[in-house]
């Protein structure tokens, strides 16, 4: 009789209508929060032009960015997916070690430097992507390369002091 399904929830509306066919399809990123956090600096290293492009487009779209910047958005998604799949292909062991550590340490990067270093090395050797933290002051050692940590939890496994 009724052509639409009954809806019982008053606050959450899930609309399963797909996008119209004139919008090209792109697969969403399948990585969840901790792997994304772990790969974030490599995504930034490879996709910076696309991301900047998208942000500039949204900035100039006067609030219509969600509609007008779909093309740039697809590029951002594709680029990030390519980084994730490359990291999975070449550095899966180091990647998993790192994001599992992150997931156990409230996703705090400084608690997991011990597993971040082999991951950074592997990604740099295989994919030529280097982790650089934007906005690091000139002539100062970036925080992820410092040998001594003050605030990391000394009882957690991710800790390595003075190595």
């Amino acid at each position: 009789m009724a052509s639409r399904q009954a809806r019982f929830n008053q606050q959450v509306l899930i609309d399963t209508t797909p996008l119209p066919d004139d919008i090209p399809k792109v697969k969403e990123i399948g990585a969840s929060s901790a792997p994304l956090m772990s790969a974030s600096f490599f995504i930034g290293a490879r996709c910076r032009p696309y991301n900047d492009d998208y942000m500039k487009c949204k900035d100039e779209a006067n609030g219509r960015g969600e509609l007008d910047c779909l093309r740039e958005g697809r590029k951002v998604t594709r680029c990030a997916a390519s980084v994730i799949s490359d990291v999975n292909k070449h550095c899966l062991v180091e990647f998993r070690k790192h994001w599992e550590c992150l997931e156990n340490q409230n996703q705090q990067l400084w608690q997991c430097r011990k597993w971040e270093r082999p991951l950074n090395k592997c990604v740099f050797d295989n994919l030529n992507l280097e982790k650089t933290i934007p906005g690091t002051p000139e002539g100062e050692q970036p925080v992820h390369l410092r040998a001594k940590q003050i605030y990391a939890n000394p009882f957690m496994a991710g800790f390595s002091r003075g190595s």
Partner: peptide, 22 residues
């Protein structure tokens, strides 16, 4: 739960809920 796949499973792009008011 965590997953490190590069591509989301089918239907993921359609189950994003809208938070609406009554």
């Amino acid at each position: 739960g965590q997953s490190d796949r590069a591509e989301a499973p089918d239907g993921f792009e359609l189950n994003n809920p809208w938070k609406v008011e009554k």
